[in-house]
Amino acid sequence: MRRLLVLLLLALPSLVYAGANEDFQAGVRLYDQGDFAGSADKLQSVIDQGYASAPLYYNTACAYYKAGHLGKAIANFRRAEKMTPDDEDIRTNLAFVKQFCVDKVDASQTDPFLTQVKNLLATLHPNQYFLISFIACALLFVFLALKRTGVIARFGNSPVFVLAAITIISATAMMWVLRANYLVDEGVIVVEQTEILSGPGSDFELQFEGHEGLPFEVLDQKQDYYLGLFANKLKGWVKISAVEKI
């Protein structure tokens, strides 16, 4: 009896995976048949069961895009990108889909250098940045210790500066990616058009109109509204029902 229980426990993850994978493949088949809405529903059902993987989010995003749901497509591409930021398919499709958004950030307000740096930083996962910074940090102190004990006294201080710089830069990059992807809540407007208000209620003044696919940083929540910080540096309250959190 105990053996059977152990076997069941061991087999459970593969059974769960098999069920999710079956729905995943069914979603792909529906996509191939041109039933994009059906494909999106099927793939979304896997997500709704609590599962997540970059390909799952990626395929769901593709199906939503084809079914005409730009906002949901962008939300799922962003989820996939968070999991595997170096996946070129995800980045290409996200950039492609974003061009159909109504709202856009004025390019003149974006620092090109900063944009390049951000794009560069976004190519690695925070764990990868951590690994780099940790190894550099460990090597730095090993080097200092060896130098202190006189084992490698003939080396200068250049390696110290190099390793310290690598540690600090990679740790900063890790913190930036973490903040951008995990420590800050992000939302995407998933309805065609919604009002961005000056307060959490329909009685407040209209700041501007937000359209499907517009991302923002969620700063607060009150009643049925999120307080968002938008790319144009404006803050405004948007109805929760019009938003999907990433």
Binding site: Y17, A52, S53, A54, P55, K66, N93, F96, L183
Partner: peptide
């Protein structure tokens, strides 16, 4: 961006994770 359409789907489900799992570095 000169592409006419999005790229094709992934055929493998990949490694399943908890939906809310954050990286250990967080």
């Amino acid at each position: 961006l000169t592409a006419k359409d999005i790229r094709y789907l992934k055929t493998s489900l990949g490694e399943l994770r908890s939906r809310r799992s954050a990286p250990i570095s967080a």
